[in-house]
Design a binder for these strands. Structure first.
Length: 455
DNA sequence: TCTGGGGTCCTAGGACCC
DNA sequence: TCTGGGGTCCTAGGACCC
């Protein structure tokens, strides 16, 4: 059996723990640069605010409503998540943290859990404990497969009578639940498949399970077939082997469009350094470094381009200099390829005159590292940089990691990732701290200066 | 004017290798 | 008129998740 523990409206709940005046009110949390709505309180959902709506449309579409909008505070959410996961880790033989706000608990080896009633009592007690110890409301679904457990957790969330825990423990419960559950809400079935399924009369999860297996395989590939089997009660979606990620990505939208390829260097060096840091955190190295750049798809008046180029390293690496150097090469290749294919057009920026302006205006870019291997398995390679130099670079990065752990992120960083100096404070500006967070709450749990004051 | 970020898996075609 | 089989890697896109 699996238990899926899911935080209710995670980001909004984190904010409410430290700002109880937000209880009962319509609250939304925004993405980076205060771009989109990524989390909504139940009150905000009840108003009809859709997920993913651009923030600037909120005032137009919901005039006169009292809606509290907050910038995202991932430092706070990450720390709250860690607290919740620690409680879960102590409550089950094995757990898999699936995302910042949910985890699967593997219950099969626990002799204690024999009947649906004991599962239910155990789940209710766990939800109450998490709520009491952290302030985070969670809903728990318990079932023989992960897909069914996800479904059960949605029932627990939707109906207060479940007291935060719903168990799908036998055949009658499974069939009943499937018949009441819209196929669109099934884990693994997205809007594309829903449209296709609707055309053949499939509305509920139960309808879906009654389709022939060959039809599901043909129209939804093997991933759709796995979902189909999981709903029948056959456990077949594996979550292990994910502790070491197979690709690592760092990407951002820019607050303003970037017209000069030179201005891409700083943010991309920063993304590359962050990827290298993430690699070292999971004790691995990467063979490939890919850079992608894209224009703003919402600016239909401008030329559009989205392209990516990959650089293969002579040997796997995880040091800042090696990853950054490769990323710079990949970026040059992207820009060269873009320049070779685009036609010139009038510049929309005030300083770029007609005919003299650059062709493309970049809005988003990122670095993806792949071909990931454990750093213990590094094979030496005569094409690679000399071992002494490699060793030096790795030690340099390790020292930087130690300093940043001790004195805070970005205490020490690669100069290539620095944009400029702030004219008033003299502090270095990075791309990261140029991102807008106008409405962010304090770092209540991770910065002593932000600690909550009790009168 | 303003439209997120980080992942996984699958499929398919082209370039290239022997 | 006739045009192999097996493989890797890259690029790109689709679909899905939170």
């Amino acid at each position: 059996m699996y238990a899926l523990v899911d935080c209710d409206n995670c980001y909004v709940s984190c904010e409410r723990v430290f700002n109880p005046s937000l209880e009962g009110k319509a609250v939304v949390v925004l993405s980076n640069n205060d771009g989109c709505i990524v989390a909504r309180s139940p009150e905000a959902k009840a108003l009809g605010i859709p997920e993913g709506m651009p923030f600037f449309q909120l005032a137009e579409r919901f005039p006169g409503q009292e809606i509290h909008a907050l910038s995202s505070n991932y430092t706070l959410y990450g720390d709250m998540s860690r607290r919740v996961m620690n409680i879960l880790r102590a409550s089950a033989p094995d757990i898999f943290v699936y995302s910042i706000d949910e985890a699967f608990l593997m219950l099969e080896d626990a002799p204690l859990w024999l009947s649906s009633t004991s599962f239910k009592a155990w789940g209710e007690a766990l939800a109450a404990k998490v709520r009491q110890w952290t302030g985070m409301p969670v809903s728990i679904g318990i079932a023989p497969t992960k897909t069914l457990a996800k479904m059960a957790s949605k029932f627990a969330k939707r109906y207060p009578a479940y007291n935060k825990c719903c168990v799908i423990g036998n055949e009658a419960q499974r069939t009943k639940a499937l018949s009441l559950f819209p196929v669109a809400d099934v884990w693994g079935i997205g809007h594309r498949s829903v449209a296709r399924l609707d055309a053949v009369g499939v509305q509920t999860a139960l309808d879906f399970t009654r389709l022939p297996a060959e039809y599901v395989r043909r129209t939804m590939t093997v991933t759709g077939l796995r979902t189909w089997m999981e709903l029948q009660g056959q456990d077949c979606i594996a979550l292990d082997n994910l502790t070491r990620k197979q690709t690592i990505c760092t990407s951002r939208s820019f607050p303003k469009m970037i017209s000069s390829p030179d201005d891409l260097r700083t943010p991309i060096a920063g993304f590359a350094a962050r990827c290298a840091q993430k690699l070292r955190q999971q004790h691995s190295m990467a063979q490939y470094v890919m850079v992608f750049v894209s224009t703003n798809p919402f600016r239909e008046d401008l030329s559009q381009a989205a392209l990516a180029r990959t650089v293969c390293l002579p040997a796997p690496a995880s040091s800042d200099p090696e990853i950054i150097t490769a990323a710079m090469k990949a970026m040059e290749a992207c820009v060269a390829a873009a320049a070779a294919t685009t036609n010139r057009q009038q510049s929309p920026l005030p300083w770029g005159g007609a005919g003299s302006g650059p062709d493309l205006y970049w809005k988003r870019a990122g670095v993806i590292v792949s071909g990931i291997v454990p750093d213990s398995e590094l094979q030496t390679n005569f094409l690679d940089i000399p071992p002494v130099l490699k060793e030096k670079m790795m030690r340099l990065s390790a020292v930087a990691d130690t300093i940043n752990r001790k004195h805070g992120e970005e205490s020490l960083q690669v100069a290539q990732a620095l944009r400029t100096l702030d004219p008033t404070t003299g502090k270095a500006l990075t791309f990261r701290n140029s991102i807008l967070h106008d409405r962010r709450s304090p770092f209540y749990t991770t910065d002593i200066r932000d600690i909550i004051k009790v009168k």
